[in-house]
Nucleic acid binder design. Structure first.
Length: 294
DNA sequence: ATAGGCACCTGGTGGC
DNA sequence: TGCCACCAGGTGCCTA
């Protein structure tokens, strides 16, 4: 489910257990995700301190004391699981001191591809069934120039995203606004769900050509995008607490959407009696209200 | 440069 | 229970 708000929620969940902490051991259980892992990734992650945990678009960036940065993308199905350290006690403790693993954790589950054991015994497990995710390592100094990051558009919650930018980028575009807002070169971080939610709130039909949106409605899109994402981050933060109480799984919260996934259900705009429709645009579902969105 | 379609991969769901 | 079609929150790459 990871769009910008979910990735930000994962980052915030990881922060207290990773930032400022040392990775005691890394296990890499397969050679690749979407692409091959960088050479010697496990070795390069072992014994280094995480000095900062950042986010750019849907990427999590962990700056390391080795002057490298770990880039993580969750793809479609990537998850992070935080397992607190289990206290060592009884006979097991004596045996454990012989090995490198000082804390008890369950055996890796299916699709647990990368495991980071922090110095205090907290385990962070990257699980990704579909393997559309990615990890890479690069020098921190040139992280912004990474091929996956270099061409990204502005952060929608940052100062570089504003009305004149959006106007300029939508100008002359013969593509549906749905596709334009999914284009990470125009804005970084929106995905299928939040584009649907944004267009519903902006009352713009997803198939409308980007170039044919009035100046006023283009201007209105900017705060709407910001609001939609900011509200989702807040919702993620509250669900984060819930998940930490249960199984520690990050990247997995569901909150109520106004249109996404609501095909056939009543439009939630007060006074509107229409129902939400679904159309397919470039292979992906768009949900909208035909009465409210033009 | 821009636009559209395909590919990558696994799992869940619902119909027969 | 099995089989099958379809669906899924992403995005790089290829083609005109």
């Amino acid at each position: 489910m990871p769009e910008l708000p979910e990735v930000e929620t994962v980052r915030r969940g990881l922060m207290p257990v990773m930032e400022g902490r040392i990775i005691a051991r890394a296990a890499v259980n397969r050679p690749d995700l979407r692409w091959p892992f960088p050479p010697n990734m496990a070795t390069r992650l072992t014994g280094v301190r995480v000095t900062a945990l950042r986010r750019r678009s849907k990427y999590i960036l962990a700056d390391l004391s080795s002057c490298e940065t770990l880039l993580v993308h969750l793809g479609m199905s990537g998850r992070m699981l935080i397992s607190p350290p289990a206290p060592i006690s009884g006979e097991g403790a004596a045996r454990e001191t012989l090995g490198e693993w000082h804390h008890h954790h369950p055996a890796p589950a299916k699709h647990d591809h990368v495991i980071l054991d922090m110095e205090d015994g907290t385990r962070i497990t990257f699980n990704d069934a579909r393997r559309f995710g990615a990890m890479d390592l690069m020098p921190t100094a040139t992280a912004d120039a990474h091929p996956l990051l270099a061409a990204l558009g502005p952060e929608p919650l940052g100062n570089a995203f504003h009305e004149s930018w959006l106007t300029q980028r939508l100008k002359g575009r013969n593509t549906p606004i749905k596709s334009a807002l999914l284009d990470q070169h125009i804005i970084a971080g929106l995905g299928n769900i939040y584009v649907c939610e944004t267009l519903y709130r902006a009352r713009i039909h997803p198939a409308r050509k980007a170039a044919r949106i009035s100046a006023a409605r283009t201007a209105a899109l900017v705060p709407i995008i910001r609001d939609v994402l900011a509200e989702a981050i807040i919702a993620g933060g509250s669900s984060l607490r819930d998940y930490r109480q249960t199984d520690g799984e990050l990247g997995y919260f569901q909150h109520s959407f106004q249109v996404y996934g609501r095909e056939g259900q009543p439009c939630l705009t007060p006074g509107c009696t229409d129902t939400i429709r679904r159309i397919v645009q470039s292979g992906r579902s768009s949900f909208y209200c035909p009465t409210c969105q033009k």
